[in-house]
Structure formats: structure tokens, C-alpha cells
Amino acid sequence: LAALHAEGPLAGLPVTRSDARVLIFNEWEERKKSEPWLRLDMSDKAIFRRYPHLR
């Protein structure tokens, strides 16, 4: 499970980098069924690119 911001401008976004990794992994797991070539990237760089508020 990932903790998400409940309200405000960040509502629905992950609270920590660990939470972001959970979301990225879950999405990758779903997408790899139809796109088996996808690589999993959970590096800090990938997290910041996707969720800049975690910098």
C-alpha cells in the first residue's frame, strides 16, 4: 500500500519516495501484461521525473 496526500494541491500523489516506488511498481506490473518489453525503473531520477514534488 502507498500513502497518498489526502487533500490540497498534492491530493492523490505519493507522500514519500517509497510510496512512489509502490505506485510505479503496481503500474508496471499491470502494463507488462500488454507491453512485456517494458523495463521497471524505480530510480530516484525516474521518481523525480514523475513526481517532482518529492525532490
Rank of each mutant, 00 (worst) to 15 (best):
residue 1 L to H: 13
residue 1 L to W: 08
residue 2 A to D: 05
residue 2 A to G: 08
residue 2 A to R: 05
residue 2 A to P: 14
residue 2 A to E: 07
residue 2 A to K: 04
residue 3 A to R: 15
residue 3 A to I: 14
residue 3 A to V: 14
residue 3 A to Y: 12
residue 4 L to G: 04
residue 4 L to E: 05
residue 4 L to S: 06
residue 4 L to M: 09
residue 4 L to Y: 05
residue 5 H to F: 14
residue 5 H to K: 09
residue 5 H to M: 05
residue 5 H to Y: 11
residue 5 H to I: 09
residue 6 A to K: 15
residue 6 A to R: 12
residue 6 A to E: 12
residue 6 A to Y: 10
residue 6 A to Q: 15
residue 6 A to W: 10
residue 6 A to V: 13
residue 6 A to M: 13
residue 7 E to Q: 11
residue 7 E to H: 11
residue 7 E to S: 13
residue 8 G to N: 04
residue 8 G to S: 04
residue 8 G to L: 03
residue 8 G to W: 05
residue 8 G to R: 04
residue 8 G to I: 04
residue 9 P to C: 09
residue 9 P to R: 07
residue 9 P to M: 08
residue 9 P to I: 09
residue 9 P to T: 08
residue 9 P to D: 09
residue 9 P to W: 07
residue 9 P to F: 08
residue 9 P to H: 08
residue 10 L to G: 03
residue 10 L to N: 09
residue 10 L to P: 04
residue 11 A to W: 08
residue 11 A to G: 07
residue 12 G to S: 06
residue 12 G to E: 04
residue 13 L to K: 07
residue 13 L to C: 09
residue 14 P to A: 01
residue 14 P to T: 01
residue 14 P to I: 01
residue 15 V to D: 02
residue 16 T to I: 01
residue 16 T to P: 00
residue 16 T to L: 04
residue 17 R to Q: 12
residue 17 R to W: 11
residue 17 R to N: 08
residue 17 R to C: 13
residue 17 R to P: 11
residue 17 R to Y: 11
residue 18 S to L: 14
residue 18 S to F: 13
residue 19 D to R: 02
residue 19 D to F: 03
residue 20 A to N: 01
residue 20 A to Q: 00
residue 20 A to C: 02
residue 20 A to V: 01
residue 21 R to W: 06
residue 21 R to L: 10
residue 21 R to S: 06
residue 21 R to N: 03
residue 21 R to F: 05
residue 21 R to K: 10
residue 21 R to C: 13
residue 22 V to C: 13
residue 22 V to I: 15
residue 22 V to P: 00
residue 22 V to Q: 12
residue 23 L to H: 03
residue 23 L to Q: 06
residue 23 L to S: 03
residue 23 L to I: 12
residue 24 I to H: 01
residue 24 I to C: 06
residue 25 F to T: 05
residue 25 F to E: 05
residue 25 F to D: 01
residue 25 F to K: 10
residue 25 F to Q: 08
residue 25 F to M: 10
residue 25 F to Y: 15
residue 26 N to Y: 12
residue 26 N to M: 14
residue 26 N to W: 13
residue 26 N to A: 13
residue 26 N to F: 12
residue 26 N to L: 15
residue 26 N to E: 11
residue 26 N to C: 15
residue 27 E to Y: 05
residue 27 E to A: 06
residue 28 W to Y: 11
residue 28 W to M: 02
residue 29 E to H: 13
residue 29 E to Q: 15
residue 29 E to K: 15
residue 30 E to F: 11
residue 30 E to Q: 13
residue 30 E to G: 08
residue 30 E to K: 12
residue 31 R to P: 05
residue 31 R to D: 04
residue 31 R to C: 06
residue 32 K to F: 09
residue 32 K to T: 10
residue 32 K to R: 14
residue 32 K to Y: 09
residue 32 K to L: 09
residue 33 K to P: 07
residue 33 K to F: 12
residue 33 K to A: 10
residue 33 K to W: 09
residue 33 K to V: 13
residue 33 K to N: 10
residue 33 K to R: 10
residue 34 S to H: 13
residue 34 S to P: 02
residue 34 S to V: 13
residue 34 S to L: 14
residue 34 S to M: 12
residue 34 S to K: 11
residue 34 S to D: 14
residue 35 E to L: 07
residue 35 E to Q: 08
residue 35 E to W: 08
residue 36 P to K: 07
residue 36 P to Y: 06
residue 36 P to I: 06
residue 36 P to M: 05
residue 36 P to L: 04
residue 37 W to I: 05
residue 37 W to C: 15
residue 37 W to K: 14
residue 38 L to M: 07
residue 38 L to D: 05
residue 38 L to W: 10
residue 38 L to N: 05
residue 39 R to G: 09
residue 39 R to D: 12
residue 39 R to E: 15
residue 40 L to Y: 05
residue 40 L to M: 04
residue 40 L to V: 05
residue 40 L to P: 06
residue 41 D to E: 06
residue 41 D to A: 03
residue 41 D to W: 03
residue 42 M to R: 04
residue 42 M to N: 06
residue 43 S to I: 03
residue 43 S to E: 03
residue 43 S to F: 02
residue 43 S to T: 10
residue 43 S to Y: 02
residue 44 D to A: 08
residue 44 D to E: 09
residue 45 K to I: 09
residue 45 K to D: 15
residue 45 K to S: 14
residue 45 K to T: 12
residue 46 A to E: 15
residue 46 A to F: 12
residue 46 A to D: 05
residue 47 I to S: 00
residue 48 F to Y: 14
residue 48 F to Q: 08
residue 48 F to V: 14
residue 48 F to S: 11
residue 48 F to E: 13
residue 48 F to I: 14
residue 48 F to G: 10
residue 48 F to A: 10
residue 49 R to I: 15
residue 49 R to E: 15
residue 49 R to C: 14
residue 49 R to W: 11
residue 49 R to M: 14
residue 50 R to G: 03
residue 50 R to S: 08
residue 50 R to W: 04
residue 50 R to Q: 10
residue 50 R to I: 09
residue 50 R to N: 08
residue 50 R to P: 01
residue 50 R to K: 15
residue 51 Y to E: 00
residue 51 Y to V: 00
residue 52 P to A: 03
residue 52 P to S: 03
residue 52 P to W: 02
residue 52 P to M: 02
residue 52 P to L: 02
residue 52 P to Q: 02
residue 53 H to I: 01
residue 53 H to P: 00
residue 53 H to A: 01
residue 53 H to L: 01
residue 54 L to I: 03
residue 54 L to D: 00
residue 54 L to T: 01
residue 54 L to M: 04
residue 54 L to N: 00
residue 54 L to Q: 00
residue 55 R to K: 13
residue 55 R to F: 12
residue 55 R to P: 05
residue 55 R to H: 08
